[in-house]
Simulated scan of single mutants.
Amino acid sequence: MKKVLFDEIHTLEKQKFLKEKMQQVSNEIHSKFTKLEKVNNCPVCQSKSIHQYTECFGYEMDICDECNHIFTNPFPSYEALDYYYNSDLKDFENKFFMDSFENRIPIFDRRILEIEKYLGRDSQLLDVGSAIGIFIEALFRKNNPFKVTACDLNQKACLYLQDTYKGLEVLNENIYSLSKPDSYFDGISLWDTVEHLTDPDRFLIKIKDLLKPGGYFFFSTPNTFSFEWGVMETDHVQLLPPGHVNLYNSKNIKIILEKTGFQVVDIQTLNASLDISYILKNYIKDSYSPLEKFILNRLKDDSIFFESFNDYLVQTKSAGNMLVIARKE
């Protein structure tokens, strides 16, 4: 399959202006809204052994010593989040998603192959947060093997989906307002959203309620137990509060799923080429050790080394974005 590379997924405009836009909206939020109280325990494993990890855009980020969960502490208020998601930043995000639309399709091609291992043809699949429809497009290019319902809060996005994909059922609703249909869902998909949720327990319980017994939940989220996080640490591009407020890893994601009635079936990290290209572009130091020079030069110039290291990251689940497959117990 086609390599997924950093510059193709993250447009140059995004790379140039993201921090500036994030800082601008964060400054506005800090001036308009009162901070909540800090919590004293990890929101995943409840351990009280937490300490500050970094500060980003004026938000403190803590890390749990027990399960390595990284989270904004305190979490932003609902009013602050509402302001954030209705700011100009959202239009900025939609633009770079549209500009990189075609280059993002291979990400979902791989995910669809995994989903097809668990859902038969014509299974009922609810896609939550369909936005501009990159996943929907990838499905339709494969003759849409499922009976898909798209759900999104944004009215413009829903109108676009209805006009573009004939026969697609589209719901312009908040997932919390959805009632269980007569024939409810064999599977639910959600892409790069869990890290945005301040109350993931409530969300997961709602997902479980919408699934048939034995139904599957497919979602992606950053994996902080990964090559790219190990290298970039507090300089990582995914540290984006108040957008990203909970950053999980391939071990502690099981805790929150099992706590809400899911069994973790599998975790895959499928797009390691994205990690490698991210590191090659962003790992910049004043000087490098001989070992660093050797590895970086081989990754740049030796396709065999690149592919071998890519396969290693996939096989060891060490790439920076994980596809989680969970089953309703």
Score class of each variant (00 low, 15 high):
Phe75Met: 14
Asp127Thr: 06
Trp191Val: 05
Phe57Leu: 14
Ile136Val: 09
Gln238Ile: 14
Leu178Trp: 04
Asp201Val: 11
Leu171Gln: 11
Tyr59Asp: 05
Glu173Ser: 06
Phe146Trp: 13
Leu126Pro: 03
Leu81Ser: 05
Leu12Asp: 07
Asp82Ile: 11
Asp7Ser: 08
Val39Ile: 14
Ala131Pro: 06
Glu66Lys: 14
Ser177Pro: 01
Ser49Tyr: 02
Glu173Asp: 05
Phe6Glu: 08
His10Phe: 13
Glu169Asp: 08
Asp301His: 13
Ala131Phe: 07
Pro106Asn: 06
Leu119Tyr: 00
Val170Ile: 12
Ser318Asp: 12
Ser130Leu: 03
Glu13Ile: 11
Leu168Ala: 06
Arg104Tyr: 09
Lys90Glu: 14
Asp182Cys: 14
Ala157Trp: 03
Cys158Asp: 05
Cys158Phe: 05
Glu55Ile: 14
Asn40Trp: 01
Lys293Pro: 00
Gly243Ile: 04
Asn86Glu: 00
Tyr288Thr: 11
Ile256Leu: 14
Lys147Glu: 03
Asn68Gly: 10
Ala131His: 12
Leu204Asn: 04
Leu159Val: 03
Ile105Pro: 10
Pro76Lys: 04
Leu257His: 05
Lys300Tyr: 11
Met232Trp: 03
Ala80Met: 06
Met22Val: 11
Lys14Gly: 03
Gly230Lys: 13
Gln238Asn: 12
Val194Ala: 02
Thr54Lys: 10
Lys254Cys: 12
Ile304Asn: 09
Val25Phe: 12
Phe101Met: 12
Leu139Lys: 03
Gln124Ala: 04
Gly133Gln: 00
Ala319Lys: 07
Phe185Asn: 08
Asn154Lys: 09
Leu119Lys: 03
Leu119Ser: 01
Arg298Tyr: 03
Gly215Met: 13
Ala272Pro: 06
Phe219Met: 10
Asp127Met: 06
Pro241Cys: 13
Asp311Thr: 09
Ile134Leu: 05
Ile205Leu: 15
Pro76Asn: 05
Cys151Pro: 02
Pro222Trp: 07
Ser179Phe: 04
Lys142Leu: 07
Ile29Lys: 10
Gln268Asp: 07
Phe97Thr: 03
Asp302His: 02
Pro290Cys: 12
Lys16Asp: 10
Ile107Asp: 07
Asp88Met: 05
Leu153Phe: 14
Ser289Cys: 05
Ile295Val: 15
Thr149Ala: 12
Asp186Ala: 11
Tyr248Pro: 00
Thr72Met: 12
Lys3His: 08
Tyr118His: 15
Asp275Tyr: 06
Asn68Asp: 15
Leu168His: 07
Pro290Thr: 12
His69Ser: 02
Thr198Pro: 07
Leu274Ser: 09
Asp122Thr: 02
Glu292Asp: 00
Leu159Ser: 13
Ile132Phe: 10
Ile304Arg: 06
Glu13Ser: 10
Phe135Pro: 02
Asp302Trp: 01
Ser308Thr: 11
Lys117Gln: 12
Met1Asn: 06
Asp152Tyr: 08
Lys317Arg: 15
Asn172Val: 08
Lys117Tyr: 01
Lys95Gly: 00
Val231Arg: 05
Gln15Arg: 14
Glu173Thr: 05
Lys117Ser: 03
Gly214Ser: 03
Asp275Leu: 08
Asp82Val: 11
Asn41Val: 07
Lys281Gly: 04
Asp65Pro: 13
Leu168Gln: 10
Asp88Tyr: 04
Tyr84Arg: 03
Met232Tyr: 02
Phe135His: 01
Leu239Ser: 06
Phe309Val: 04
Leu81Ala: 01
Arg104Gly: 13
Asp82Ser: 15
